[in-house]
Design a protein around this nucleic acid. Sequence first.
DNA 1: TAGGTTTTGTACCGATGAGTATTAAACTAT
DNA 2: ATAGTTTAATACTCATCGGTACAAAACCTA
Lengths: 207, 207
Amino acid sequence: MNKKVPTKAAGRPRSFDAGKALDRAVEVFWRKGYEGASLSDLTKAMGINRPSLYAAFGDKDKLFRKVLDRYAEGPASYSSAALEEPTSRSVVERLLYGTADLLTSPGNPHGCLLVQGALACGNAADSARKELVSRRMAGEAALRQRLNQARMDGDLPPEANPASLARYIVTLIQGMSVQAAGGTTRSELYRVIGIAMQSWPSSGRIV
Amino acid sequence: MNKKVPTKAAGRPRSFDAGKALDRAVEVFWRKGYEGASLSDLTKAMGINRPSLYAAFGDKDKLFRKVLDRYAEGPASYSSAALEEPTSRSVVERLLYGTADLLTSPGNPHGCLLVQGALACGNAADSARKELVSRRMAGEAALRQRLNQARMDGDLPPEANPASLARYIVTLIQGMSVQAAGGTTRSELYRVIGIAMQSWPSSGRIV
DNA sequence: TAGGTTTTGTACCGATGAGTATTAAACTAT
DNA sequence: ATAGTTTAATACTCATCGGTACAAAACCTA
């Protein structure tokens, strides 16, 4: 009954915006990776003290998961949205160009959090690394399913291999992330995409 | 004059094989990255004590450079060798398949040291990160030059863009490295290469 | 055998890592 | 006002980080 307005919970009120703080954490993990982001880096960027971080977000690992969720719903939201494009070609193009834009957007670290977060690391970060592997695989699976449906719809030729095509696109995306981390510009990535899309079915050849 | 045989330098002889120890260090950095590889990891794998490591290889950063050199001359030597193939197409195919093989070779970490070494990291590893960016760029430049020459030789059509083609191939290679780190198998990578090569000039379309 | 030189092993250094105990402060409810 | 509850800030914990001092050991030359 009294649920909509949360009745102003008791106790000292939180003096910071948890959402804003989480956004700052996203940026730190994005630029430095799980292992390279120290709690001092995080608390400094978030503008809060260490115990506040632990009270609000749990330990470093839990904070990282929340950061990944936030990333998926924020900067990387184009990714799931792209799957709703009408044709397989437009799905893939929106995915590729959207990625290129995100990877080179000024004000953000140049790279993809799911790749930069942890590729190779020490034991302490291994849980985070596995989480990233799992999320990358989930993204690939979603694209594969979308391409599978496209083939059933006749939007891709019957000889096309949705699994391999999805992997091809994801491989490009992850490669672009490494490229962007090394300073490759947006227009350079666009040219790579232009070449890559020549392999796409229905523009001529198939797989 | 007396230079060929080094006259058995004075002092207590080194009790380990520096080359073998370096190979172990390659493996550790390859699997854990610069930041994730602690000196304890390294000395343990190399079978030597900490002061021996510093005496023989310098500090962690210097050791890492030596590891990168060793990697280039050893596991990644196919890379420079590929540039000597007769046609641009065989250059690129040898590069791609050689990479897929290295990335999925049993007994080695699955991934490329130049990518796994450090993508995003804390301040302490930033020098290593920059070194890797520079080495990746050097590899791309070498391929670009080779493709440039191919175009001048008529081995690539005059409308081809060697810079973009080189970047496309390198992007694929780096993407495959991320894929391999996530468990993608060799045959799956082969299928990606098969799709990717459909974009290559002289098999039909151009750029 | 004695002196000089280099490596080895142990034990340490200060700095920083993640995580927490504790008390003061700021709020609500009675 | 007073009690109960939650957050805030300081200051700490212990483990590990990269790097090194020091003395014993193992070699060469003389």
